[in-house]
Write a protein that binds this DNA or RNA. Sequence first.
DNA 1: CCTACATTCAATAATTCCGTTGAATGAACT
DNA 2: AGTTCATTCAACGGAATTATTGAATGTAGG
Lengths: 221, 221
Amino acid sequence: MSISNPKQALYEQFAAVAKALGNPQRLELVEHLAQGPRSVDALASKLCLPIANVSQHLQAMRRAGLVTSERDGKFINYRLADESVLAAFAAIRAVAERHSAEVERVVRGWFDQRDNMEPVSREELASRMNDGLVTVIDVRPADEFALAHLPGAINLPLSELESRLPALEAGREIVAYCRGPWCVMSFEAVAELRKRGFNARRLEDGLPEWKAAGLDVEASA
Amino acid sequence: MSISNPKQALYEQFAAVAKALGNPQRLELVEHLAQGPRSVDALASKLCLPIANVSQHLQAMRRAGLVTSERDGKFINYRLADESVLAAFAAIRAVAERHSAEVERVVRGWFDQRDNMEPVSREELASRMNDGLVTVIDVRPADEFALAHLPGAINLPLSELESRLPALEAGREIVAYCRGPWCVMSFEAVAELRKRGFNARRLEDGLPEWKAAGLDVEASA
DNA sequence: CCTACATTCAATAATTCCGTTGAATGAACT
DNA sequence: AGTTCATTCAACGGAATTATTGAATGTAGG
């Protein structure tokens, strides 16, 4: 940790950032924070982890400059430091996608039939939405939906999907999305919907990427 | 390492990639490999590290899918797996640049005067080169220069810079580049040239970024 | 002031990571 | 076959990371 050599000091800074991203739990925290600011407590219950554990991870990420925190009454809200953090996450994901047979394997585990599991791109969805050709469902929990969602999307949390299936118009194309490209909820939703005979596909990305691309989002009152 | 939960399995894959980048020495290896394929031995002597150490780092990176290796006679050449690795490195660098006061501090250590230390962008340099207005110097060691360099650049390794200064036309604008945006050699070169009264600036990026942008490179015979 | 509650801190143990050492492998050359 | 040389392997110790526990801090509200 000596600062003698400036070149080494630089690499250590860069490595510190990568190291802060080098943990599955912290990556999951990033994905949740990409939906919007959250308190330690809220994150802990989403991830089903001890609060102290989450707190420490968040502090580690703060030290590396990934997140910032702000007190709000009794709570402390963490948020992503800036868009570059999400970009870094995406870049790492891209490396993993190209290499890792494991990633492929996981995805295939969801779909026996690999045909037409291709996700819908942002651009494609945006144009279909304009034409009113598609029902967009947001499978995230209601609280995340309330903060921001795609315009016109209906909230159908995974836990309630089965019971609320009758509300969906059969035959109409359905596109499901959730937190991000590898958030498993939309995979599960599409698998479930297909099993029931719906014409369902997945949005390639999640809400954060949609927002980052400068497209409109809606918020509930 | 259990594969029970697919969501967790994904995050672990992603984390593994980030972890492989989360070490200063490995990042330096990435930067060198970005110049072109190298043997373990060549990398070890560039970084001044024990060979076994470098070998292990490279194997860790190979496990994470960052590099691939190929035997060539007695040597084993490692190379970056694909461009996405360099993109991930750049993304991490970007996070560090936004946050880290330390990064700022290091850069300022080189320049007392902060004015006109702004780097030249790729686009700007490309157009000036077309107009023949600028002398481009490549301050990397001769072997790296030989593999690939900017068209028309002259090789002036940092170690020989002082002795070969007379070869430079005074008054003409000089742009120096090296391995990448934070490779310190070009910082040092510019500082030295300025001290001698030359009108010198740094290219914002290094050779790998130039190549990745699809611009032309030259190679020596 | 006292309580409730969100968060952080401190201390611990289990695990993993890192660098070093010296031996083993494997290809090229004599 | 035997030698040389690049690389890898195996094993060790020290350092850092991680999850867990329980206590401490600090804010809000009665």
